[in-house]
Design a protein around this nucleic acid. Structure first.
Lengths: 375, 375
DNA sequence: TTGAAAGCGATACCAG
DNA sequence: CTGGTATCGCTTTCAA
């Protein structure tokens, strides 16, 4: 049996001898429809295997959403990548530049609220944001002018807010992978430490927990000292690391769960311990590249910011267009980058922006070659 | 300056006092248009910042493409994953099940041509296929009834054919990562081997080359013996491995670039060398899971078949809808799976199919929650 | 509670 | 070469 043409609203209406308007209303649970006709429509729709044509739906709804992207200013390449992932997906889905408004704030917790309120004031239909201070976000969201504006968190979750979803790396997988690698690199013995921003940050606590658990179960001869909290302050990270190395001169490895691996490297270098230490870092940024090349950092766990951005946008637009969700937590498997495969990542990343832009310039048309650079 | 409404074809036509038809033709390089009007249109379109509405375009084109997916039968979970990735993306993009026809062939080079011709006979608008015998594919494509049917290769490329694109893992990154890991796991010394299907297969040759190169540059004290070609025959892999282990009893590691890691494990076990050997495998399938759990396989380089499928579909549909391409080679960074993070991958994979299906069942509506399971 | 009809923004065909 | 118009499938008034 071959179904040649797709079944449309019209087909159902026709088969039932009613109008497409009624079919539409029945299918969408509109209260003003005779229960009798509703069941008949539902039945027929099922029989005929009706599936709505999303494209037609979008066109007729002529929805032009405006989304605000509130993230940290771009010195850290992480957020540049996130933004470019969002931009790519927005283009691929045919959104215009005017529809995506980027608002940045300079530092953790600084200007974040202003950005949020600017987004509300601009009547954004949805917000993608980095909740640098989850607890404050909670407050803003509660007393927001429009209470149910969909918010998607990137990189970090903001628990107990009414956010639509949170997109982040799979923290458990990250911590576990780091632990297993560490164990192997150290020949299954030695003493290791973990640094993180704060135990109160869910993601970091999870990485630590996973790291610890995997170490215990797979490499039980490796011992773990107390975690270091740097509170996102470079000097604190450095100082605490120096102290750590002083009190544990036999330390064999450090797993840095945040981007703050440079202070750790520097502390190790200043303590003359750098070459005895196996460092597993997180993410990719200019300064760490050389450290990987020089062999000071054994590996880094790449959280794929571009893909995080892309997913965040998809989740949001899925909700905006189809009302689907919430998707609570969307997690992403991290990539492992070592000296061996470092260059391939750098290449991929470099070709990315330009590739798409070149294509766009060539035909003077919007490009959605986003998939070129899928990582 | 705030642009309130999107500029449409009609706006341009209006501003110029001409019709939308002419604007459309001018914008699309139609030869039958006065060069004078064309430049005026192009100019105006640029000034007004026109960008086509993809949704409207799709609807008006009302193209119902039929694509054929020709892959290896599903005992290997690899191809099941590829197919499900294709299916997910097809759904997400609003295609119906009838529009994607899966044709499978039982073994390498067996029934492949029949599948290809069936696809042609069925008047498919595009084909996604695994070119198990690239050279034969070349012939079929040359004497195909319809000469320019777009073909996207998955997993392996078929060079010198007029294929639209090939989607595969980044072979260089894979080989390099394997090499660096191997070096670290072995403390930078020892003798290692590589197994592959055949040197004639580009992808395998590339993995080997990258492995060798990275070994040389990063771990020069590790020596590499001649590669083993198993020609996709399990017994050949086993036999050659036994021979290898007999002649090199001091072998410290093996990098298996193909899915055929079980014969290697068995050969090593039968030679009583399994626990002295560090094996780095490729991909994830039922049998290997236990080997990873038991510590017989140190790590596996996962080629993300589901994502390969997804990308293959996107490339094809991009071409079908917008005439874009070719994209020659689309590569994907591999994932590293070890004992530590194995369970997270299994979980992700498990929740995938069911998650989407559950959601679909729940609202009795098509689901495109593909992003749940982005890996 | 239902039907009829007007869009949404592009494509494509037919006249002129 | 260009204008006019039907069309794609769905949503959304406006009457009845």
């Amino acid at each position: 049996m071959t179904i040649s043409r797709r079944v449309t609203l019209f087909d159902i209406a026709n088969a039932l001898g009613i109008s497409t308007g009624t079919v539409h209303r029945a299918l969408h649970g509109n209260p003003d429809v005779n229960p009798m006709t509703r069941t008949r429509v539902l039945q027929m729709s099922k029989n005929m295997g009706y599936r709505p044509n999303m494209v037609a739906r979008l066109l007729s709804q002529k929805k032009h959403f405006r989304v605000s992207v509130n993230t940290l200013k771009g010195t850290t390449s992480f957020w540049d990548e996130v933004r470019s992932g969002i931009g790519e997906e927005a283009q691929a889905l045919g959104m215009h530049a005017e529809d995506v408004e980027f608002r940045t704030f300079p530092r953790l917790g600084e200007g974040e609220e202003e950005a949020f309120e600017a987004a509300m004031a601009a009547e954004s239909d949805g917000i993608i944001l980095f909740p640098s201070r989850p607890s404050s976000l909670r407050d803003w969201m509660r007393r927001a002018t429009r209470p149910r504006i969909p918010v998607v968190c990137v990189s970090t979750d903001a628990p107990e807010t009414s956010r639509l979803a949170a997109v982040s790396v799979d923290t458990m997988a990250s911590g576990s992978l780091a632990a297993d690698l560490m164990g192997r690199f150290l020949n299954r013995k030695g003493k290791v430490a973990v640094t993180l921003s704060a135990l109160a940050v869910t993601e970091h606590a999870e990485k630590l927990a996973a790291f610890e658990k995997t170490l215990k179960s797979l490499h039980s001869d490796i011992s773990l000292v107390d975690p270091i909290e740097d509170h996102d302050v470079e000097s604190e990270a450095y100082d605490k690391c120096r102290k750590l190395l002083a009190s544990h001169p036999d330390l064999a490895g450090i797993y840095v769960t945040t981007e703050a691996s440079m202070p750790v490297v520097e502390a190790a270098r200043d303590a003359q311990l750098l070459d005895r230490l196996t460092i597993i870092a997180t993410d990719l940024f200019p300064a760490i590249i050389d450290q990987i090349r020089d062999g000071n950092v054994a590996a880094t766990i790449y959280q794929r910011p571009r893909t995080q951005g892309r997913l965040a946008f998809r989740v949001l637009q899925e909700f905006l267009f189809h009302g689907r969700g919430p998707a609570f937590r969307v997690t992403l498997a991290p990539h492992l980058i070592m000296r061996g495969n470092l260059d391939f990542f750098l290449e991929k990343r470099a070709s990315s922006g330009t590739g798409a832009r070149a294509a766009a310039a060539a035909n003077d048309m919007p490009s959605d070659f986003a998939y070129w650079n899928y990582d």
